[in-house]
């Protein structure tokens, strides 16, 4: 294949950044960095490049560097889990709908369209509002429940996005004659889906999955700004939400989470595009 172009610098950069932040997310707690919960009273509002606090300290006394590392864990954790679960459910629905067609397909497809018609954020917000409130308003909602609710809401956002891609791709593959051939040989439907359709749909899903990670990170951050993000405001979005309050006195508390967030979303989008481009070129040869 002469089309196998070597990767460009931005691709390496994007890959490098995602690897790095994933590393921070996984091994963050093991690094010789103080807990992000430690309050540094002496360094309140310290500017960046202060010795010991290279990213500075916010007005509550939290070290921003520790916050970024901890935030990577939460933001990426939420993003990958929701895209993973949402992608699984979405592609299961999408692929089976495309394969079996008929009534089941129209129901699934309509459901996808209905969910997609509501803007992501509004949908997530509505779900959080419904699921994460107590009947007794005096009783606080436990953190785990708020986190679970948030992730469920984001998953619901992801399901139709990936589901529709999976359905469209599976639809073209189910029309191929090798699927008819497999049926005529007496292959069971679930084997046909598993052996012939899933492997062909998967690469597209992975490429779009990267884009979806970006969507989720942004959605979570936006929810944080609205005050219903990951509890305790420890994600990157949460840091931005907190820092917003004293933008005038301590703007650097915002810079770093914003940069981290932007780099991550740009990287996932870029990698998604690169993967898609490679796939398109490969499909063109088939």
């Amino acid at each position: 294949m002469s089309t196998n172009k070597t990767y460009t610098v931005p691709t390496y950069a994007a890959f490098g950044w995602l690897t790095f932040s994933t590393f921070l997310a996984v091994f963050g707690p093991l690094l010789p960095v103080e807990s992000f919960r430690t309050i540094h009273g002496d360094f309140l509002d310290a500017k960046p490049f202060t010795a010991g606090h290279w990213f500075g300290v916010d007005s509550n006394g939290y070290d921003i560097f520790s916050g970024i590392i901890n935030g990577a864990r939460l933001s990426l954790f939420v993003a990958f889990i929701t895209v993973g679960i949402g992608g699984f459910i979405g592609s299961l629905l999408g692929i089976t709908a495309a394969y079996y067609r008929g009534r089941y397909d129209s129901i699934v497809n309509t459901a996808f369209n209905v969910v997609l018609a509501v803007p992501n954020l509004v949908l997530a917000l509505a779900l959080v509002a419904v699921l994460a409130t107590n009947v007794d308003i005096n009783e606080a909602v436990p953190t785990w429940r708020r986190l679970a609710t948030l992730m469920i809401s984001l998953t619901v956002v992801i399901i139709p996005i990936l589901g529709r891609i999976a359905r469209a791709s599976a639809l073209t593959w189910s029309g191929r004659e090798f699927v008819v051939a497999a049926r005529s040989m007496g292959m069971r439907d679930r084997h046909i889906i598993w052996r012939h359709i899933v492997p062909n749909v998967l690469p597209v899903l992975i490429a779009v999955g990267f884009l979806a990670v970006g969507v989720v990170i942004i959605a979570e951050a936006s929810l944080s700004l609205l005050g219903v993000g990951i509890p305790d405001g420890a994600s990157w979005g949460g840091m931005i939400a907190r820092g917003r309050n004293d933008l005038e006195y301590n703007p650097h508390a915002l810079y770093f989470p914003i940069i981290a967030l932007a780099l991550t979303v740009i990287s996932t989008n870029h990698l998604g595009d690169v993967l898609r481009g490679r796939l398109d070129r490969r499909e063109a040869r088939l």
Partner: peptide, 11 residues
């Protein structure tokens, strides 16, 4: 089948 390419799974 008619289409020799489409009737074989490329993977």
């Amino acid at each position: 089948f008619q289409d020799p390419i489409s009737s074989l799974d490329p993977r």
